[in-house]
């Protein structure tokens, strides 16, 4: 074990954050202000998520980090190593084995269980921010449930693009009360916000924590004549053949060649291990990169 206090933050700070988390769980979707600490990484790299993870991790936990669904990107690897070093917790890339999953911009394809916690990194927690710059005013709008403005944004989308073009950070209403930004997850993931696991959202720079307790109603905002539609690329994964997962599009050469593959790397790998093969995939080998 290192010279760091468990999970980097001091105990008082973790208590303060836990209090914010508990308040957030008690008022689903409500943005709880908290005294965000300086973390040894720049804002925008997940300082909010890291602080929430630090506050909920216990020595027995198994930790997983994904960035846009992938376990092997710089951001994910750095944060995973950070907690390996400062908390000494076990880490995994397998969704089913993790007890705490920190994520940036995705919800794992595999359904989470009641004993799992999903921690989101949030850049801008205020869904009304783009149309109402005043924080005083937006807090009042939340307090008084004045959410007409949120639909103005969707109206603008339809009037300009013929459809609701908002593809990520698609606003939701939680338990019929607070309108919430689900962080920049693709709207494909929105239906998964109603889950068995606990969902915690941390915004470090903006100093806000909010939460969705298990089995909470989460409704994506829409119009009667333009209902919400979770969308994904109209393709199957070229590696594992999955037709139900969110896909990344990858340009593979200078001639416009491209392939689609699961953004959730663990999901894809698991399927390939099970013998699924996509259009451009090769059968899974244990040591393949």
């Amino acid at each position: 074990m290192s010279d760091y206090n468990f999970a980097y933050l001091d105990e008082q700070t973790k208590r303060m954050i836990r209090r914010a988390i508990l308040k957030g769980l008690a008022i689903p979707g409500y943005q709880v202000p908290f005294a965000s600490r300086e973390m040894p990484m720049p804002y925008g790299w997940g300082t909010g998520g890291v602080q929430v993870s630090a506050a909920v991790l216990t020595p027995d936990d198994t930790f997983k980090v994904i960035d846009q669904g992938a376990d092997d990107t710089t951001n994910a690897v750095s944060i995973r190593r950070f907690f390996q070093k400062t908390a000494g917790v076990a880490v995994t890339e397998a969704t089913s084995e993790a007890s705490v999953i920190q994520t940036r911009h995705r919800i794992p394809e595999q359904d989470l269980r009641a004993d799992q916690i999903l921690v989101y990194q949030v850049p801008i927690p205020e869904p009304l921010r783009f149309l109402e710059p005043s924080e005083v005013e937006t807090r009042k709008m939340h307090a008084l449930e004045e959410y007409g403005l949120m639909h103005v944004k969707l109206y603008e989308d339809i009037s300009q693009h013929g459809d609701i073009a908002t593809a990520y950070a698609y606003p939701v209403k939680v338990e019929g009360r607070y309108v919430m930004d689900p962080s920049p997850i693709p709207k494909f993931d929105n239906p998964k916000l109603e889950m068995a696991g606990i969902q915690l959202f941390g915004a470090g720079r903006e100093q806000r924590i909010y939460a969705i307790p298990p089995y909470t109603q989460v409704v994506s905002l829409d119009f009667d004549d333009y209902p919400f539609q979770p969308t994904k690329a109209d393709h199957a994964c070229d590696l594992c053949g999955a037709e139900d997962s969110y896909l990344d599009e990858l340009i593979v050469d200078d001639a416009g060649g491209r392939m689609f593959m699961c953004s959730d790397t663990d999901y894809c790998a698991t399927r390939r291990k099970q013998g699924h093969v996509g259009a451009q995939g090769v059968p899974y080998k244990e040591d393949a990169a």
Partner: peptide, 19 residues
Amino acid sequence: VSAGGNVGERLMAVNARHY
């Protein structure tokens, strides 16, 4: 916000939900 959105805002504020 577009002219239409400006006019529509008060309607949406009183729960008009049909685009």
